[in-house]
């Protein structure tokens, strides 16, 4: 019995120290694990203009201008700051005003973001269209869920 208990103690101690070490490493690399910057963070970060970065947030309603050709201009907002984006290429099917997007590209000296790739991000809500309609009509559409900023955009 004592041998078993000793093995169990060793195992638990090993797991505990492994967990602690991992937590320390992860918190040390926290900034590098971020997939995208929010507009607020991007402006604060003062990145060199040649650096390829991702900026994520919501497509500002009313900001989308299409053309000429496949050129699209829109603004990404985190409800605190916004970044003007220009992009030439194919947009994902989910791209629409008010929708979460992540754009990869470079910040030009004028403050405009030239994207080379635009990805759509969706939230964790799933429902049939009729339910979404009914929620909007009854005013039960809660901004905390819905297509409004979720933790990732607003706080980072």
């Amino acid at each position: 019995m004592t041998r078993k208990r000793r093995r169990l103690t060793i195992l638990l101690l090993a797991l505990l120290s492994l967990g602690t070490a991992t937590a320390l490493v992860l918190s040390a690399f926290d900034d590098n694990l971020v997939f995208f910057y929010s507009p607020t963070k991007l402006k604060a970060a003062e990145l060199p203009p040649e650096r390829l970065v991702r900026v994520g947030g919501l497509v500002l309603p009313g900001s989308v201008e299409k053309g000429p050709g496949s050129r699209v201009a829109f603004a990404i907002t985190d409800n605190a700051a916004e970044v003007a984006v220009v992009y030439e290429g194919i947009l994902p099917d989910l791209f629409r005003e008010g929708q979460g997007v992540v754009a990869q590209g470079r910040l030009e000296p004028g403050g405009r973001f030239r994207a080379v790739e635009v990805l759509a991000k969706h939230d964790e809500n799933y429902m049939p269209p009729e339910v979404a309609e009914a929620l909007k009509e009854s005013g039960e559409w809660r901004p905390a869920e819905g297509s409004d900023p979720k933790a990732g955009y607003a706080t980072q």
């Binding site: 926290d30 694990l33 971020v34 997939f35 995208f36 910057y37 929010s38 994520g56 992540v102 990805l119 991000k121 969706h122 939230d123 964790e124 809500n125 799933y126 429902m127 049939p128 339910v131 869920e145 979720k150 933790a151 990732g152 980072q156």
Partner: peptide, 19 residues
């Protein structure tokens, strides 16, 4: 972290966000 993947829909403290 900021991820492209959305947060949990079913196993979350405030209940599922799936119809």
């Amino acid at each position: 972290w900021n991820t492209l993947h959305q947060p949990a829909s079913v196993m979350r403290l405030d209940g599922p966000t799936i119809d």
